[in-house]
Amino acid sequence: MEALKQRAIELLEKGEVKAVLGYAKGTGQARRAFFARQPGQVDKLVLDEACTQNLAAYATKHEVKKLGRVAIVAPPATQRALIQLMAERQLRDGDLAILAVDEGAIKELGSAAALEEHLALKAQGLDAKDKTLLAKLDAMSREDRWAYWQNEFSRCMKCYACRNSCPMCYCEHCTMDCNRPQWVPVASHSIGNLEYHMVRTMHLAGRCVECGDCGRACPVGIPVHLLTISAEETVHELFGQRAGAKAKLDYALSTFKTDDKESFIR
């Protein structure tokens, strides 16, 4: 922690960055995103298990880009999101100063290559609770699973907290906001909710870095992250590809190969 603060102050004092994006104390035991813009604010930074938000979601925001170059405190899921954003050409190598955090240790990663190398050493594992729930869902009959999700989606009100918290949902014009044509109904009724979550899941298949932030963001506790995680796992199974590993990537769902095993594509 002290090393992080030290480095944050240095970066700010030398003018290498305009802000250090990390975590600070929030309401009660909560931690929240915090932009230290002056060396004097660095003291507010904290780092512990409660720091879960994927801060990469801020990296593509206009308001944040306008600040100038930013250093970002990046636990593993954030690291994966950052490299995936590079793979999708939303971030350039070197746009951000990445302060990688792994089990308390801080490592500054200056380049995409360094980030890639760093990530290659990390095993990506699912949260135990999510693993159990996913297994339970997998074991369900199709009808039961359908009923489960219908019941969950009935609480959805389309606040888009899941979309807006997701680092990979950076689109300037989200499909949900398009009305020519109106792909998905705006209303938060059963069809509107179902279509929204299906589209969100499909758009994140092969792109989800499995941080779980969408699920944590949901104010009514719908485990929407299980949808994108399971789609991600399916892409991994079928194409051997994982989001958040490489800074250059031919995205599985938009890559054509003449030796594809599916006959319909040939």
């Binding site: 995103a33 308001e63 389309k158 606040c159 888009y160 907290a161 918290s165 963001a217």
Partner: peptide, 26 residues
Amino acid sequence: QSLRCIGCGACAFVCPTCVCFDIQEE
């Protein structure tokens, strides 16, 4: 204050007084 706001509608939708609405055609 708003630098960390992600611009979702959670606050407004849970709010007991937020009344803003949209009119949609289906």
